[in-house]
């Protein structure tokens, strides 16, 4: 037992770095899944899209921030397309996402010029290396600090957005479409906007992750949606009774817990390839206990 624990603790800072970065994507999925009540599979394509755009741009000499901005815009465009397909062509949410996700696989390959693997050269500047900020920060902690700063920034911006007039309308669209129509607004347009914002954040996350790992893999998108959804559901369900915390905080905690349990499973000797099975079981466990609890509550009522 001592050996796995040691290796888990040794890897802990790296686990948290990953947790913070993936939390960005979980926040994006929170917009679609929790706020809009839209199961959006575009994520599996928009996540690597952000990575492909940002990595290719960095390799061709762009600075990290403009690269991330363009990655975000690309993700927003992907979400926009999913929204248009769903709203204008009246295609089911799941299918709309699958269509765009499938198309993005080819588009991502086009962006990288056909290679499914891109690595960022040693001397290139990224958000996490070779820039003025990282020289100021203690070397061992700089990645963790930058990732934390990014996720906090995203969280506060998202919380602020959800409390604007537009944010109330977005929440209304997920809560009761009838109210949005009654307010004289096209609820379809509100959904499209929400999908666009969510996928922008997801692609941003993809860009950030590739800058941190200095590597883009075409396969990075596989399971991205499930992973984020697991973070959202773990966070929101485990902390259901804590009313003082906002959903965005719960989602970030969920992402950290997910990555921590991932790290723990690896140090216990599971292979990375087994992790999808672990995620699926974790997912099943949380969802079924929630159902059982709900049933219990009804039986007692």
């Amino acid at each position: 037992m001592a050996v796995p624990l040691m290796s888990f603790l040794r890897a802990f800072p790296a686990t948290m770095e990953q947790g913070f970065i993936y939390a960005l994507m979980a926040l994006g999925v929170m917009i679609t899944y929790l706020v809009l009540d839209f199961p959006d599979l575009t994520v599996d394509g928009s996540f690597p899209l952000g990575g492909a755009v940002s990595t290719s741009l960095i390799i061709s000499g762009f600075s990290p921030l403009p690269a991330l901005l363009l990655a975000t815009l690309a993700g927003m465009a992907a979400g926009l397309v999913t929204g248009l397909i769903h709203v204008k062509l009246k295609i089911r949410a799941l299918f709309s996402g699958i269509i765009v996700m499938t198309a993005l696989y080819s588009i991502n390959l086009r962006i990288t010029g056909g290679s499914s693997l891109l690595s960022i050269p040693r001397d290139s500047v990224t958000l996490f290396r070779n820039n003025a900020l990282t020289r100021l920060l203690p070397q061992a902690w700089s990645t963790l600090i930058i990732a934390l700063a990014l996720v906090l920034l995203a969280k506060f911006l998202l919380d602020a957005l959800l409390n604007t007039r537009l944010g109330l309308l977005l929440r209304a669209a997920g809560d009761n479409q009838q109210v949005v129509t009654a307010l004289g607004r096209d609820q379809g347009n509100v959904k499209i906007l929400g999908l666009s914002l969510a996928n922008g954040l997801v692609a941003f996350c993809g860009g950030v992750l590739c800058q941190q790992q200095r590597l883009f893999e075409l396969s990075m998108g596989t399971g991205a949606m499930v992973l984020s959804l697991a973070s959202v559901i773990i966070g929101v369900n485990l902390l259901k009774r804590v009313e003082r915390l906002r959903d965005s905080t719960k989602v970030i905690i969920g992402a950290l817990l997910y990555k921590a349990s991932y790290g723990l499973a690896i140090s216990l000797g599971l292979r990375p390839g087994d992790m999808k099975l672990v995620t699926a079981l974790l997912f099943l466990g949380i969802l079924s206990t929630r159902l059982l609890k709900g049933k219990e509550a009804r039986d007692h009522a």
Binding site: N163, T164, R165, L166, G167, L168, L169, L183, G184, R185
Partner: peptide
């Protein structure tokens, strides 16, 4: 806010 713009002002 029904007749106003649904913008980024506080909801």
């Amino acid at each position: 806010n029904k007749d106003q713009r649904m913008n980024l002002r506080p909801g």
